[in-house]
Design a protein around this nucleic acid. Sequence first.
DNA 1: CTGAAAGCGCTAACAA
DNA 2: TTGTTAGCGCTTTCAG
Lengths: 394, 394
Amino acid sequence: MTAAEKHQAGRNPAAVPQPPGGRCPQPRGGGRLNGRAGIRDVAAAAGVSITTVSDALNGKGRLPDATRSHVREVAERLGYRPSAAARTLRTGKSGLIGLTVTTYGEEPFTFTEYAYFAEMVRAATSTALARGYALVILPAPARRGPGGTVVALGPDVWSNVALDGTVVVDPSDQDPVVGELVRSGLPVVSDGRPSPSLPVAAWVDNDHEAAVRGILDHLAENGARRIGLLTGTSTDTYTRVSTTAYLEWCRRVGQEPVYERYPAHDPCAGAVAADRLLARPDRPDAVYGLFDPNGTDLLAAARRYGLRVPEDLLLVCCSESTSYATTAPPITTLSLKPGRIGTAVVQLLIDVIEGVGPTRPVQQVMPTELIVRTSSRRAGRPVTVSPPRVPATE
Amino acid sequence: MTAAEKHQAGRNPAAVPQPPGGRCPQPRGGGRLNGRAGIRDVAAAAGVSITTVSDALNGKGRLPDATRSHVREVAERLGYRPSAAARTLRTGKSGLIGLTVTTYGEEPFTFTEYAYFAEMVRAATSTALARGYALVILPAPARRGPGGTVVALGPDVWSNVALDGTVVVDPSDQDPVVGELVRSGLPVVSDGRPSPSLPVAAWVDNDHEAAVRGILDHLAENGARRIGLLTGTSTDTYTRVSTTAYLEWCRRVGQEPVYERYPAHDPCAGAVAADRLLARPDRPDAVYGLFDPNGTDLLAAARRYGLRVPEDLLLVCCSESTSYATTAPPITTLSLKPGRIGTAVVQLLIDVIEGVGPTRPVQQVMPTELIVRTSSRRAGRPVTVSPPRVPATE
DNA sequence: CTGAAAGCGCTAACAA
DNA sequence: TTGTTAGCGCTTTCAG
């Protein structure tokens, strides 16, 4: 067969005679441009080929400026919008980035419930958009139901959306789907150190150990003798690392650990745990709470037991909420700077997608910020602010 | 030409002899499955046709259960993931819903900065996922720069993502892109009454007039004689409608309006405006603040002027933040119930996309909730809670 | 510098 | 019931 014959064989059916019966072949398929102009219409209207249209609109080929602007004008006039689906199919790039949160405990989808996530998502979205990507919010990939079976929440949206990569917040080491995503070659970057068995392309995290040490030192400097911890029961990295750092610190300074754990997703349980902590016979004279609402809970509990803050009890909690500036008294908070995390994680992901930067896994540690307020300042004590640590990028 | 000949002409090139030179035709195109299994691989491995694979996986045709499960098993074994892009191109449905916020004033992208948006987005995402759609967060479509030119923020993400429809929060009547979206046939549903010139398919909104009237009545019942308003300078519907309702109420009860406007996106301006309002010679004895941080700002200003809340000054502000339950004193807030709004707006949009429900424009008015706390309860006055209004659906 | 055509992976219409 | 094939709209290679 000659090359000409090959072309013959593949020729557009429109060029061959009609099938017997003379009727026109019906257009099939549901995606037919619904009255809107396609690239062919533009090409016809502009008197050029579709290649030229594509090149002109994407700034690709080396066309005369006149042609380019003419095509652009015609496209504009016809209200031509290129089909994102077709482009994605052809190029293999969708311009879409997934964002998913392995939520605390069994809570279904609490996403922006806490100020942390709100700010993190805001920054991530903004950064993605600035680099020409859009963020798709996706459900936690999978969860273990009773009996260890994987429970999907509703239809499998994951496989229905073409992603160039995805951000996983707080990846659980048990999640089989995250592992599968990575293995299938999709770039995955995580917020929070993943377990070593999850070979994500990069991760970003705060230095939680240093943050906890900084807080405990700060409390000790302000006169605390016995520092308690309010922590969670879940196995995410944040909870685990922070709790370990606390225990380690206690061991180092020779203090007996005093802590209460509760399921972090349940606000009522938090209030109860705060109460329990202050009801103990070995009541702490300072408490650090790992989760956002701990501050108010501890304040309420202190009030119930007639403890004055900061005179009888020093208080710090980890929170992004500005409302702690206006409680009575204002409460010292640790900010994880979620905005920076969101930005960093998306930058890293897009770098991986676009193949710029190192191909080795990247770990990026972001500084935290201790915002010292009345609740942790014992009268007559000097104010100490941990200086922001320099981000260490490997 | 016979039907057989037609098929001949269109036959798969793989079935025809190689071109001269004997080399295989090079695969072109960038989207080539990167080592991963395609539907053809599954078909080959399972010993069936690709149609059967497609039908088996999508639960479409009427195949024997044996075939179906066999195909599923093979697909699973090969790690087959269907290409969302190809499916979208073919079916014309992407399963993607856009969500965009026309941000306040000139602020670039403040999205989840306020608890309202956080909760609204959370609910919208959750609802979308439950119905098999994912949410894509997109930038405000366009803004007027100096001189009236349309300013795009970064690359045009809008035209690069295949949407089945979109939610527009607080659509500005000047935005040309929203109008274009509607005109191009994309289903658009808005949170907030759109201007009549924007023919969206449906909208959801609170009854802001009724909410403002309810608050003013509540304050009056608690002894307020001169009620002030802290409002914004922007032209979005919420600000406009609320302010008008306030002025109308004043006219009706014969009170001279006392209000300050400020650019709502600027928190400092809010604090200054709160101060200004309480510094006036005709100082109000009650204030309603339209925006989230007004409560704390007004509280701080009241403290500066030595005004006791609620004895000297009654306070209400519109906010979704739970932190107002723990301020000193706790502040009465109006909740717009953003979760319900987010859910409703997505349900409506998906109904339109899927062609269920009425085709006429739908207006859905959602109730608000006044959470009465100490700041608006004058001692000795009875507590009054506006009963939640029944949602009126046309 | 421009145009023809192949084909991305899938689904739906039709043929067998 | 299963298989064959056209083609969704676009980008890209390659020939002219």
